[in-house]
Design a protein around this nucleic acid. Structure first.
Lengths: 335, 335
DNA sequence: ACCAATGTTGTTAACGCTAACAGTGACGGC
DNA sequence: GCCGTCACTGTTAGCGTTAACAACATTGGT
């Protein structure tokens, strides 16, 4: 038995047509007699024929594959985004190839992109949330369709991004509306654009209310760092409201507050960011900001497909607004 | 300007050799003069040449791509596994193409596998934790290297799996060792092999201790279902120890117990499964069972590569033992 | 000096597909 | 009846690579 399945010529022979007619049927060309089309279809089914993507990619110059470069696909955000991208791409007939990367530095990103390019992917999505990624993107070949997600807004590259600033402002405002005098912020790592945007939004909301932003508590997305910041905040009696840059930080903060006997939301209100599925089951259920990953994926893919089809690049932008999800971790201050 | 980069012949022309010599340098063949090799390397660098994977795949019959079929890559387990697989595969020079799938039924899996096959992947990893997936795997073409992860142990297909039974036994035993009279179990969905294995392990540990397993509380992996089960368990004064099939279920249980004023671990001890990064920051820190996803990924890939290189299939098995991580959610019963 | 073995390189033919072009037959307007 | 048009189908030529083989140069043993 041949290791490789039947080829187009085998189908053609069985159907009594030329391989080109088979190709036409496969690609949905018009001008094929209905009867012929059916014969070909039958032959395809009978032989269990599967078109050879490599051959097609070779002759057309591009495959039906989209490359994704991401750093830590274990984190909730990237994982959700990746899954959404895959779903969306599949619907358009594209496969998704992951090129995850240990660090988002210049070398790693370039290497990952290189790998994708040598597979002749149709386009590349780079989830590039940190500054060091930006410089790698500048040197990339210009002729491959590219979209960045949560990347550097100042770069002339098509970009889809969650509106971090608006989300953070909403979260902060929500706490101020509840009556809090000010809002503390536990941030993500300072080299992530997401972090910077969320810090900005928090600052903007406070300044707009005529308030002086209290010192920033820098975290690194992990519950562990949230816990450490939480231990400090718990000791400060004037703290009544905390906005954390993600839900896992919030979990660490909640844990620290609990240990110090500060009750949430009675003594201190907390708002997170991401709306991980578990957020509703934290103690207490966490008020948070939900980015719409599906929308981000759809927008990214649409931007990518536009480039693939038209061949033109261009510095397109798309921003997805997140929504606030109110739960029980926010209440007015006690007095 | 040509949209496509330079081809092997361009490199050959610049280096003053035949394209075949370039090919030899690229594939590390012996019998190439050192001086020639250097000239070719220089030409490759100068032109920024990148080999065309599609052409290579066409002529060799297989690409350097591994297809992964998974259901919900947002869940912690699958996401970790996928990331680990990607890392391991990259180290071996393979790219990973994801084919996620809404449901693990026969049709969806077959379709995903078909997609991978038409891209002529070198091998396929199916993360197939449910029974309905098993039947899809039976009808798969036999000539493509395949490994299943957490699949049906009774199927004659290479399988890598976490030793769910041993993990669950260890968790249950840990609670019994602490002095509890019996252990309740909040399980995952009953069509998942993982669930079944964890239920088995729990039963085995109880039976070995001469105990009659209490009724099973069926969940679905989500914190929401854990919460619902927890509400029931919280009302039953005789419950002092709970083993949940994963950490998110545990989170829901913890929340329910907290609402009913049952303290953990003072009144009730809880053990989870998975060791999500946040587990250490639950209230209280969760004792849990940690599967080694890296080891699973390594084993899967190794099994796959063996098949790819040797061409032989065979019903190889590999089981990875998980480890218990003791934290503060377990204590002896009060009296 | 000759021959075989070995090292190094080039030539040719696939791999399976699509694009471009070249037929073939049927039909209708003149 | 002739010719152009249209619908349909076949033929041919690559795409960029590797494999198989052929060719040539070098070496060493006799």
């Amino acid at each position: 038995m041949a290791v490789h399945g039947p080829a187009m010529t085998d189908v053609a022979r069985l159907a009594g047509v030329s391989h080109q007619t088979v190709s036409r049927v496969l690609n949905g060309h018009p001008n094929v007699r209905e009867q012929t089309r059916l014969r070909v279809r039958a032959a395809i089914a009978e032989l269990g024929y599967r078109p050879n993507g490599a051959a097609r990619a070779l002759v057309t110059g591009r495959s039906q594959v989209i490359g994704v470069v991401a750093q830590n696909t274990t984190l909730y955000g990237p994982a959700s985004l990746l899954a959404a991208l895959e779903q969306t791409a599949a619907a358009e007939g594209f496969a998704v190839s992951v090129g995850s990367v240990r660090n988002l530095d210049h070398r790693s990103i370039s290497a990952a992109v290189e790998r994708h390019l040598s597979h002749r992917v149709a386009g590349i999505v780079v989830i590039a949330p940190v500054e060091s990624a930006a410089e790698a993107l500048e040197r990339l070949p210009k002729d491959v369709p590219l979209v960045t997600v949560d990347g550097d807004p100042s770069l002339p590259v098509p970009l889809v991004t969650v509106d971090q600033v608006a989300g953070a402002r909403a979260a902060t405002q929500h706490l101020l509306d509840a009556g809090h005098r000010t809002v503390w912020h536990v941030s993500g790592p300072s080299d992530w654009f997401d972090s910077v945007g969320r810090i900005d939004g928090w600052r903007q909301a406070l300044l707009a209310a005529g308030l002086d932003p209290p010192p920033l508590m820098p975290g690194d997305w992990s519950a562990a760092s949230g816990y450490r910041c939480g231990q400090m905040l718990a000791r400060m009696p004037e703290v009544t409201a905390i906005f954390t840059a993600n839900d896992h930080l919030a979990l660490g903060v909640l844990r620290a507050l609990h240990e110090f006997g500060r009750r949430v939301p009675d003594d201190i209100s907390v708002v997170g960011f991401d709306d991980v599925p578990e957020a509703a089951y934290f103690i207490p259920p966490l008020t948070t900001v939900r980015p719409d990953f599906d929308a981000v994926a759809r927008a990214s893919l649409q931007l990518l497909l536009t480039q693939i089809e038209s061949g033109t690049g261009g510095a397109l932008r798309q921003t997805i607004a997140p929504t606030l999800v109110a739960r029980e971790s926010v209440a007015p201050p006690r007095r």
